[in-house]
Design a binder for these strands. Structure first.
Lengths: 344, 344
DNA sequence: CTGAAAGCGCTAACAT
DNA sequence: ATGTTAGCGCTTTCAG
């Protein structure tokens, strides 16, 4: 039914080999025949059959992205970056949302093994040894986004630097009693952000009051949730008669919970307590959060470029790129007059 | 390099036809050979080559989803529904984000024509006649989500019923002077929601004050934006000395802008003005919006089922399914004590 | 430079 | 019931 290279070969009075050649821009064709073939192809509205090409070329021109579907905001933007650059490069993207590491492994072992995709992007999910081994053995191009592994190229965010910028912003504003609300410390970024925080405090000769440091024991989303932030703030409120003048919260979504808790106690932000957080998710601007922005779109873009490099240039050495988040000043630290907080 | 049915045929001392049969659960195989083949397949860790299958079967077992990437919230959930049911049915999903109708048409004409996907899902984008014709001609299964066309099966939301429920909620609360803030009326849902609103008011013998009905002329996102809502509310505030006691806002994202405008004028919600809106996007709960929830996950699920039905059962008549949104009572109408609004 | 032919891995029709 | 063969549509030798 569909028009194939045979059709255009017949019509153009050439062999299918020649047709294939001009379609693939092979230099070894006369301009005359090339034009003829091209014009017939256009006339017939020819479209190559992707699967047949994939089969013959042993290349599918598609990447798969594995993302934890529950987390939303961050991924949307990274995916958008990935998707748009993929399109511009003539690739397709198969997206696979997983809810757990097991599901990821199941998917990987089923769908990725044979030719379906040329490479894959894994987002925020820790790689188990068995999966890592499989990728290594089968030599499937893999790039990790927002997660890392010594054997694979990855794109991530410099949590330490981000925390430094955020905390020093607070310090520069004159704050000395600074607290921190962290997510579940089993999460790597959560841990890094806490460690980073302590380092910055020390470097600036500020004392760390352990009562001002709360971490979440919640497991849902590793404690990166509004509820976890709310609980942590409540707890800090209960445990202390005196409060810090500023708090660094390890994610925006938690910061939103913190704001709610604070509001319930009639503690005004930024007047009584200043807040900085991390991520700059879509929500953040609606709440006027001063936060550390991760260059999500760019990360997606770069991830794709790396993956394609890996595919088209198998010898590529693995590289681990790190982005530095940037400070977005809005209302929660009180020095951007454009934001009258809360800004809903 | 990879293990093929030839490998397992040789190892199991049978023909490739037999191997293919057992792999495809053909009944015409002896239990003995079946077992033998299966065990060899397992031993060799065989995985079928998706593209070769697709080529031979003329079926790819993948669907593509075309979504306007800019709109975020709504799609995430619908996609999640779509994705999960697709996986459970052994299909893959290729996601394609487009920023304009032109981009959509470009993508369609390039990638969809030949065998790449068995069917496609189009989200919220209006179908041009040429595209519609193409789908019809090529007979490619298509289901529309959150948009409609007489010739294709679609899943959408009953805006009229939703508006009725929302508005009568206000009426039941005792409101008589009710205003509405709409999006750009060039958008179909925006128009439907306005028409629905007027109908309900009439049916309840409530007079409609045109000064209380504001529509946005913004084109970005068809006026479904925070900014548009903010502007509309500002305008209503300027134009009137007296205000309605309740407002129906045609989307949550606009309602958030309305809240901001109201707050600037020290008008308290729900005390001075009650608000109902539409969508129940992720943001809404953080703002305590009372709103009409669209069953997004379910819509994705159903869309997939319809599409697959179309694929596997070409004779299927087109069906247009409509979901009724449900009222989510939070804080903006003031009768849910669980929500002390604003709840950020 | 170009035509013919082999083969990518699999399914399905055709024999047996 | 099972082996054999012919494609699916394309790329890529291999001759010429």
């Amino acid at each position: 039914m569909a028009v194939t290279i045979y059709d255009i070969a017949r019509e153009a009075k050439v062999g299918i080999g020649t047709v294939s050649r001009v379609l693939n821009n092979s230099p070894k064709v006369t301009d005359g025949t090339r034009e003829k073939v091209l014009s017939v192809a256009k006339k017939l509205n020819y479209q190559p059959h992707a699967f047949a090409q994939a089969l013959a070329r042993k290349r599918s021109n598609t990447l798969s992205a594995i993302i934890p579907f529950f987390t939303n905001y961050f991924f949307i933007e990274v995916l958008q970056g990935a998707q748009e650059t993929l399109v511009s490069l003539g690739y397709d993207l198969i997206i696979h949302g997983v809810n757990s590491r097991e599901q990821m492994e199941e998917y990987l072992s089923k769908s990725l093994k044979k030719g379906r995709v040329d490479g894959t992007l894994i987002f925020s999910l820790e790689l188990s040894d068995s999966v890592a081994k499989e990728f290594l053995e089968k030599n499937i191009p893999l790039v990790l986004v927002d997660t890392q592994h010594p054997k694979f190229t990855s794109i991530s965010v410099d949590n330490f630097e981000g925390v430094r910028i955020a905390t020093e912003h607070l310090i520069n504003l004159g704050h000395k009693k600074i607290g921190m609300i962290t997510a579940n410390l089993k999460s790597v970024p959560a841990k890094e952000r806490l460690i980073g925080f302590k380092q910055v405090m020390q470097k600036n000769n500020l004392s760390i009051n352990d009562r001002f440091i709360l971490s979440s024991s919640q497991t849902k989303n590793d404690g990166f949730s509004r509820e976890a932030g709310y609980e942590s703030m409540k707890q800090m409120l209960q445990q202390n008669s005196e409060l810090p003048t500023a708090i660094f919260v390890s994610s925006d979504i938690q910061a939103i919970g913190v704001l709610a808790a604070l509001r319930e106690h009639n503690i005004s932000v930024p007047h009584d307590i200043a807040l900085v957080s991390f991520d700059d998710i879509e929500l953040s601007k609606y709440f006027g959060l001063t936060t550390m922005r991760q260059p999500m779109y760019k990360m997606g873009e770069l991830a794709v470029h790396k993956a394609i490099q890996l595919i088209e240039n198998p010898g590529t050495v693995l590289s681990s790129e790190t982005f530095t988040p940037s400070l977005i000043v809005r209302g929660t630290c009180g020095q951007n007059p454009a934001y009258s907080f809360p800004s809903n």
